[in-house]
């Protein structure tokens, strides 16, 4: 889905590159989480995945299309949807169904087809019943579903989240992620999420750690979060279960560094206490 070769990016008027030699290959249909401290370059990297920013050197291929080639720009943005933190900054229309239709209108889809595709997207996002409502009567979680529906209506191959759940409360955050992941499974979407919530990163097949513009760790969630010392070095904290296992291991308990979920962790601890 995404192939990145030696990507270096420096903002105009600045000397220090924000991204400093990133090479990555992300396969279609995978769920990837990108974590890293504030100002490590996460958002900048996300903006390279749909040609909003273009590399200073190196290249980014999206489904084989070079982001620097202007003839592909619009197609790339159809294929890769980008969702930001604040839904209010992303909504142009003020009525739900018009909002969802905005992107389709931009690529010149006929009105009947717009109706069909936006209805499907509204159902997928679970907000079909809200379609005639005006945007400012919606809650934050509902608004972020509208943004998701708008992206889904364009029938993308990939969705990039730039801290898309940061403004949602925990219950709504879980619901929204479940909607996203089930859409992901249904349409075989590649999902690339930037997050500060380590429990969200646990949902990913692969976790990347970005620090000072470089990918410093890359592996499965279980693998990455077992490297507690390394994570802390980069200003990150492992999720609570992993932190607990690490503390126990440090204190001399015979527990493994990698754990998979609450059940697995309970199993390990109760066995250890039973002396097995």
């Amino acid at each position: 889905m995404f192939t990145i070769d030696e990507l270096v990016f420096t903002y105009p008027d600045e000397n220090v590159p924000v991204l400093n030699g990133i090479s990555l290959h992300i396969s279609p249909g995978s769920v990837v989480a990108l974590i890293g401290p504030n100002a490590s370059g996460k958002s900048t990297l996300a903006r390279h995945l749909n040609a909003l920013l273009l590399p200073s050197s190196g290249r980014v291929l999206i489904e084989g299309m070079d982001s620097r080639d202007p003839q592909y720009t619009n197609l790339i943005r159809q294929r890769v949807g980008l969702i930001f933190q604040n839904p209010d900054d992303q909504m142009i229309g003020s009525n739900v169904e018009e909002e969802v239709a905005f992107g389709l209108g931009n690529i010149g889809v006929a009105p009947e087809e717009i109706r069909k595709r936006s209805d499907e997207a509204l159902r997928m996002a679970g907000i079909y019943d809200l379609r005639t409502q005006s945007a400012h009567t919606l809650s934050g979680g509902e608004k972020q579903r509208v943004v998701l529906a708008e992206v889904l209506a364009l029938r993308p191959q990939g969705i990039v989240l730039d801290e898309a759940t940061a403004m949602l409360d925990p219950v709504i955050r879980q619901e929204w992620l479940q909607v996203l992941l089930s859409a992901g499974r249904k349409y075989n979407l590649t999902i690339f999420m930037i997050t500060h919530h380590m429990d969200e990163a646990l949902l990913a097949d692969r976790v990347l750690v970005l620090d000072k513009g470089r990918i410093v760790l890359d592996g499965s969630a279980a693998e990455i979060f077992s490297k507690v010392d390394k994570l802390r070095e980069y200003g990150l904290e492992p999720p609570p279960l992993q932190a607990l296992m690490y503390t126990l291991a440090e204190a001399g308990c015979p527990v493994p560094a990698e754990v998979y979920g609450v059940k697995n962790c309970a199993e390990i601890i109760s066995r250890m206490l039973a002396g097995e």
Partner: peptide, 21 residues
């Protein structure tokens, strides 16, 4: 749970307690 999602450590401890720890 639908009111206040339990922190994962709380989930673990409720699971442990159910297992008799």
């Amino acid at each position: 749970d639908d009111e206040l999602p339990k922190p994962v450590i709380t989930q673990l401890f409720q699971e442990l307690s159910a297992r008799g720890v």
